[in-house]
């Protein structure tokens, strides 16, 4: 009966309460701030990327500078030379080709967010649409939807995503399609379950008695009431998509000639044995912080909205 409580609580009430519940927990607040920082970085990275693309120059994060190869992070050099100039020049060091690690991490954040957003734009509409149709209409439509998602769910996860990106061809398009066309299944299952729960509630029956058509009821009445599920799904699949992209790019199938975190890890892995620890450390730290914040915030969001959605 909690759904009814949610609907009677007034406009924005639930959302404001959820936001307050998240913000009142210091750890979650830290996570939200980290997420915000990363999205700002990603936005900045996008601006830089677009600037260099339009002016047709080699971006600074791609420029080779063989004289400044293997520069340790600024604070390490500062420790030995005590000059403030060292602290801010290449604050996170340079890689084996003299490219600034900090700038490349910002570009990696751009690609990570791009992947998270684009795959969500593929998977969530697909999953929501199919889940709504199957859940509301039942019968043959539902059987078709269940068949579709059972088939895709049977595919061996990561290998199937890799196969899609191989078939589509190297590059981020393959990554988008691979992740987007496989992860709608989870969205679809959840939404379908929720729609089935709502299908026969009094407010839906009332709408039906008033003579509204099925699509009007689905998208104007039921969907707003299960919108929180979509938000939760988004926050939980975002970090998963980022991790998968890192994995695919690491194998050389994803981003090409762009500093994706996966490519940076692969590059830094080989230099680790030569003592270049900073690139790997900072990239993995950035990846870890972003994914962890999303995971923690996603959990908190789920708890705030609906503790019973826990799986």
């Amino acid at each position: 009966m909690e759904e009814q409580d949610i609907t009677t609580e007034g406009e924005g009430g639930v959302w404001r309460q959820a936001a307050l519940a998240l913000w009142s927990r210091p750890m979650i607040r830290a996570c939200l701030i980290i997420m915000l920082l990363f999205s700002l970085l990603a936005g900045y990275g996008e601006a830089v990327y677009q600037y260099y693309r339009h002016t047709d120059q080699t971006p600074t994060y791609q420029q080779l500078n063989l004289r400044e190869r293997y520069q340790p992070p600024g604070f390490v050099r500062f420790y030995s030379t005590r000059s403030a100039a060292d602290l801010f020049r290449h604050p996170l060091g340079t890689d084996n080709l003299g490219r600034d690690v900090a700038l490349r991490i910002v570009q990696g954040a751009r690609i990570a967010f791009q992947v998270g957003v684009v795959t969500s734009l593929i998977a969530i509409p697909l999953g929501v649409l199919l889940g709504c149709l199957g859940g509301y209409f039942g019968g043959r439509t539902d059987a078709l939807v269940v068949w579709l998602y059972s088939t895709v769910a049977s595919m061996p996860g990561l290998l199937f995503i890799l196969a899609i990106s191989v078939v589509v061809g190297k590059g981020l398009t393959g990554v988008y399609l691979g992740i987007g066309l496989t992860t709608w299944v989870g969205v679809c299952r959840l939404i379908r379950g929720e729609v089935i729960k709502h299908r026969d509630l009094p407010y839906v029956q009332a709408a039906r008695v008033m003579g509204h058509g099925p699509f009007y009821i689905l998208f104007r009445h039921i969907l707003p009431n299960i919108a929180h599920v979509i938000i939760i799904v988004f926050s939980l699949r975002f970090p998963a998509a980022i991790s998968t992209e890192v994995f695919i790019s690491f194998l050389g199938l994803g981003a090409q000639n762009e500093p994706s975190w996966g490519i940076m890890i692969n590059n830094a892995r080989l230099r680790l044995w030569q003592g270049m620890w900073w690139e790997l450390t900072f990239v993995t730290l950035a990846l870890f912080l972003l994914v962890l914040s999303f995971n923690l915030a996603g959990d908190a969001l789920r708890d705030a909205f609906d503790p019973r959605l826990r799986k």
Binding site: P239, V246, F247, G262, L272, T284, L287, V291
Partner: peptide, 22 residues
Amino acid sequence: ATVLMSVNYIVWIVAGQYFFAY
């Protein structure tokens, strides 16, 4: 558990191979 879950698979392998094996 959430922290463990958030460490990328690749990092486990690269770091494990470097520290424990090398």
